[in-house]
Write a protein that binds this DNA or RNA. Structure first.
Lengths: 89, 89
DNA sequence: TTAATATTTAGATATTTGCCTAAATATACA
DNA sequence: TGTATATTTAGGCAAATATCTAAATATTAA
């Protein structure tokens, strides 16, 4: 959970999630969408992977990344809990 | 949105939101829940306020903090959008 | 096997973050 | 008014973060 929020705290990484929401992409296809260097994008992808927000699958020389909904669910649950009606103050 | 994710990227600040989910609290009451110094908590509260995740109201010498659902809604919306069924890959 | 392409790892650097103590400000109380 | 209480602001420091270039690794193609 901690690492998920950390992974989400970056506009580039959130944009990556939005791209992957459209369809699975290779690391290179993702990198092309940004003005940031390949290695930096690779690092961002690694963080998203650590947070289990995305998963990666190697196919030949390419690595395909895809969005992973499970952790998103968990976070949404946390927010929904926050929104439950609270005691009257 | 950017600042909201930033504000959420800290366990202390998320704990503060959970405390405020129970009921409104003064800065001091919040600070007592942590082993962190008063000024540090004050700084965390300021960030949460900037992100509009909480609102503050002064009452005499106390400042009451309360949870602000509007931004939470906005973030949940972002997540729900991510979860919409995506194109088949 | 050699060269090209795709991606990650390593190392360096500038910026941001979170914490602290000390000082400042605001309000309440004696 | 003078003192105590509640909270914020300021300044400093260590750790974390985002970025870069260069180098390494893996796979494909000539």
């Amino acid at each position: 959970m901690n690492i998920a929020f950390k992974a989400l705290n970056d506009p580039t990484r959130r944009k990556i999630l939005e791209l992957l929401h459209e369809k699975d992409l290779t690391a290179g296809e993702i990198a092309q969408q940004f003005r940031i260097s390949f290695p930096s994008i690779s690092h961002h992808l690694d963080l998203l992977k650590q947070a289990k927000l995305v998963s990666a699958e190697k196919d030949g020389q390419y690595v395909y990344y895809s969005l992973n909904a499970a952790v998103v669910d968990e976070i949404v649950k946390w927010f929904m809990h926050l929104k439950q009606k609270k005691k009257q103050n």
